[in-house]
Design a protein around this nucleic acid. Structure first.
Lengths: 245, 245
DNA sequence: CGCACTCTTGACCGAGATCAACATTCGTGG
DNA sequence: CCACGAATGTTGATCTCGGTCAAGAGTGCG
């Protein structure tokens, strides 16, 4: 069916999770010229300080957004999935204030800023949905500040896992409450402001409490309600349309 | 001089710090109809879960943006100054995911969403600068995640104070490196994910190191270079035009 | 098959939390 | 003008969560 092919476009599918797009808008998005590149795991995509004249959309894979402090510590401030445009901000903030690295092998599509600008000019509703997308990213940051600032180890990790599962579900990357999850314990540590040793012990605690299984890059919430409770997780901040529960 | 009156409009002054606006754009911004309200200190302006059909601009005062966790802990995720539109996000995310409270007595101006939408339709360069402003807010969140996640007590507090001084300077609210700073130690604690007791000791440490003075709501960086170093502060993430140093 | 990365475990340590007084400031009403 | 109570700030004693260090066990890739 020709109709479903547009819906299958990663960006369209992603934007569908947060707003309803008009048919011409979907077509325009799906028609964006992009330069597709395959990347291995652990490759830097863009580095803090770079100037950018294009954005990239993740077609497949998992990407981390991070900053390095003056004393050399790394904080992962966000992660991105298929359909996300991690550096959409560069459209209006060309000097990058953070870096991106692939966690898994990825397929990404580079899109020239000029094409995005033109798209926004012609389709004000696309401007709105992309702006909205960046605002949701900001909402996620607020929740992360809260997570790192106020929650103890187990809640903090549980919260992060809940977010991953919820966002994966939204774009159709889960089966029930199982998804691929390739972050190493070191990366989890950098995302939560914890040490790897304590991440290890906290994961064991969550496993012992029969909330999750996690092995061979596969994460399952075997007790989704319990995991949400442990992580004080309320998906409202993700602003997803039609979240289950 | 009539020309300077537009430049004195709080929103115009704020937007001037991040982009150059055309003359008609400035006029349009300055002509926005707004409903001005005076608020005392410690008043909630908007609460998580509210739906909003207007934004507010701070004309005078200092506002904190916070979230409450399920276990009742408060995290201040951002603060806002004169000229800021703290809930600009509500333009495209009408359900609020966080709350705002006045730290000092404030004068704020409420602006109907419809008026802002119309302004953006008529002036695409205003859309750009407002979008840009929200992207800078997101950049600040990234830095806060990093600050709370990776820096120890003294660096964390020093970093926050550097940010306050830098943002105050940008909108002309400092004399040298002195500004009004009305956050209590409890509020500082909630903004940094620390306890009030340790905030107290950390402030003493910064005073003993001759980096700051802070009393009677007046903050001075008596050693600006030293304070920045202590806080690993690099203002790049604020994306301000023409920062000194 | 060997080296490098990731995960796991145990022992110890320390930054910052918690608890409990006390001091100071300030607004409010008598 | 003073008294008093509520915030706010300060200090000391103690505790604990999570960090650090170190070593070993898997695991996987070249």
């Amino acid at each position: 069916m020709a109709a479903s092919s547009i819906e299958d476009h990663p960006i369209v599918r992603q934007l569908n999770t947060i707003a309803s797009l008009s048919e011409p808008a979907k077509q325009a998005v799906a028609g964006l010229p992009m330069h597709v590149v395959s990347l291995e795991a652990d490759q830097e995509i863009l580095r803090e300080g770079d100037r950018s004249s294009q954005c990239y959309v993740i077609l497949e894979g998992f990407v981390a957004n991070f900053k390095i402090t003056a004393t050399g510590k790394r904080q992962i401030v966000a992660y991105y999935l298929a359909g996300d445009i991690p550096d959409l901000q560069s459209l209006h903030l060309p000097v990058l204030d953070s870096s991106w690295i692939t966690i898994t092998p990825c397929k990404v599509g580079f899109i020239q800023h000029e094409n995005l600008h033109r798209l926004c000019e012609r389709h004000p509703d696309i401007t709105k949905v992309l702006w909205r997308w960046t605002l949701i990213a900001a909402s996620i940051y607020r929740e992360w500040v809260t997570n790192v600032g106020q929650r103890n180890a187990s809640a903090r990790v549980a919260h992060l896992l809940c977010e991953v599962i919820t966002r994966m579900r939204a774009v159709g990357l889960t089966r029930d409450y199982t998804c691929e999850f390739a972050m190493t314990q070191t990366e989890l540590a950098d995302a939560t402001g914890m040490s790897t040793v304590h991440i290890n012990r906290t994961l064991q605690e969550l496993r012992r409490a029969k909330l999750i299984t996690l092995k061979e890059n596969t994460l399952t919430a075997i007790d989704w309600e319990g995991l949400q409770e442990a992580g004080e997780f309320d998906p409202a901040y993700l602003h997803i349309r039609n979240v289950a529960h």
